[in-house]
């Protein structure tokens, strides 16, 4: 768990994620600090965000734990916000899928496309922690 309050006086609070029956296992694992993705048992393709049926072939999918490593595909730092700047972007995981996320615990002005990042979990307002990424 990351202590975000230690690094910046004002940090955008992340709301509790909406959870449904399909996504529940992901969030149970997130509480244990484990980052899960889904992979199709028929075509073997991983995908994001997790679905019960593969978005590429409609095959059955299974959860697998990912080290959550990848590179920044793109990002944008939001400046016009009451809680201070924050960075949103996509990470291309080493497994392949691109994941929408926030970049945290880093100098936002130094973010670069292609930069290596790794997942960590950040607390939310009353929900399970959510995956965010930091440069390695």
């Amino acid at each position: 768990m990351t202590d975000t309050t230690a690094t910046a006086p004002q940090v955008r609070k992340i709301p509790a994620p909406a959870i449904n029956n399909e996504s529940k296992p992901f969030w149970e694992a997130a509480k244990e600090g484990r980052f899960l993705i889904k992979r199709c048992v028929a075509c073997n393709e991983p995908h994001w965000y997790p679905r019960v049926l593969c978005p590429f072939c409609f095959g059955e999918t299974k959860w697998e734990e990912s080290p959550g490593e990848g590179v920044i595909y793109t990002y944008s730092v939001m400046h016009r916000t009451p809680t201070g700047p924050y960075a949103i972007g996509y990470v291309t995981l080493n497994e392949g899928p691109a994941v929408l996320t926030n970049f945290v615990d880093c100098d936002l002005s130094a973010l670069k496309i292609g930069q290596k990042v790794k997942v960590k979990f950040q607390e939310t307002e009353g929900g399970p922690p959510v995956p965010v990424f930091s440069p390695v």
Binding site: P17, N20, S23, W27, Y49, M78, T124, V130
Partner: peptide
């Protein structure tokens, strides 16, 4: 479907 995995990030 995408809500839990996207709207949390302040997009």
């Amino acid at each position: 479907p995408e809500a839990g995995f996207e709207s949390i990030y302040g997009g």
